[in-house]
Amino acid sequence: MTDTPLVIAGKPFTSRFLLGTGKFRNKQQLAQTIAASGTQIVTVALRRIDLERHEENILEHIPPHVTLLTNTSGARNAQEAVRIARLAKDSGCGNWVKIEVINDSKYLLPDNQETVKATEILSAEGFVVLPYISPDLYTARALVAAGAATVMPLGSFIGSNQGLKTRELIQVLINEIDVPIVVDAGIGAPSQAAEAMEMGADAVLANTAIATSPNPAALAKAFALAIEAGRQAHLSGLPQQQTSAKASSPLTGFLYDDVRTN
């Protein structure tokens, strides 16, 4: 079926696969993976430069047609997220920001309340804000009211590869929220990405599973195919699950009719 583009803040994207750039073994591998994935949006982070040694600039390995989405990783509250976003904007690399406010080192769960506060401030300043949250309907509504361009609910803990542990809560957001839903975090296999898309998610973001694979570019390609397959399945319409069998071949009128009517 023909699809319409994914539109975020008025910008159309034909790929529904957002790629995180963390944990890659080297920049060449990252560049190959971006190409193989077909992604049009990648996330990056901001860090203090290392004063003691030379570091390769990651931006040189991201093609110009790819939209940069700077995350606010390291922010523990709204104020720190706002500071990071403003720094990123000053680089001249655009004003797209993934709000990520984390104040828990064991589960790395996002702080939804602080995320809403940061979204209010940054949207008012003209940023395109893609907030990362624990899936929650009221938070998502508050984010939309605050001007969020998407809502990005987590599938499971960051880097856990556990897939859609929050499936039912994400489904509520898909059903009720009008901005694009991008499933982020915990997606560890193409089948999990396909599942999110079959449910009606608008896009999927993956990083750890791909970057830590022995062959990131090949796995990124597999994710891209799965996301496309899941999207096509969603557009086509999937059947309801049944609790008993429904024959897919005719069971009467042939060979054993006399036996079956006993």
Partner: peptide
Amino acid sequence: LEIVTFVGGG
């Protein structure tokens, strides 16, 4: 003074 730059991140 803070000097920051872009790095890989998810």
